[in-house]
Amino acid sequence: MEHYNMNLTLKVWRQKNAQDKGGFETYQVKDISSEMSFLEMFDVLNEQLINEGKEPITFDHDCREGICGACSMHINGRPHGPWGQTTTCQLHMREYKNGDTIVVEPWRAKAFPVIKDLMVDRTAFDRIIQSGGYISVDTGNAQDANNLPINKDKADESFAAAACIGCGACVAACKNASAMLFLSAKVSHLALLPQGEVERKTRVVNMVDQMDKEGFGSCTNTEACEAECPKGISVLNIRRLNAEYIGAIMSGDDK
């Protein structure tokens, strides 16, 4: 693909801290290479702001290779921008052309309060995982490999669910700011394996409880989450989560 440079107008959400009301600032960036990633373009903008003696834009990022889930940016109305199954760090500037205007906002959800600028507090996800995303294991010597026979299909499904990187795009995309896709991935990858069996029923009930306490919405099955998930987590997991939840409350073994 041919390499080109572009000038862009960026409208970026600036907010000093959680209490600040915040608002959009407009910036111009010049000579952005089509081969840069979206975050590299932000690095250029931040250099520019620092040189001008202004406060650089705060945004989350870590791996910059699409595996950590830190780079939360809502770009022109979509989490992580327009590319399917892509995080912001993997979105590249060849998507844009000279003269484009790009609006960048933080994730918007009651459960993800803005810390500063584009950085939000996603520890709600950590607390959901703490409430049930673990298994009991025997101590002592390690078991022989293959001691626990696991159906290949189940192992694959579990693995696909475990691919969730906790980025929060599902919440950001959902009109209800629901965390059901995230939670369904966390519940599924353990519920599908024999190792997850011991806490299977308490897990799903406790994790749903925690999700509700954190202030996420109810799922209305719009499937926006699946469409925006960088890891392609399927809403079939939400189906499983619902079934697991119903099973747990019907059985009465959920305590």
Binding site: H74, G77, E105, R108, N176, S178, A227
Partner: peptide, 16 residues
């Protein structure tokens, strides 16, 4: 109420 601050741009048709 779960999204007290709305998005300025929200491209719903892109995903649902």
């Amino acid at each position: 109420s779960k999204r007290p601050v709305k998005y300025a741009v929200y491209d719903g048709k892109a995903n649902s």
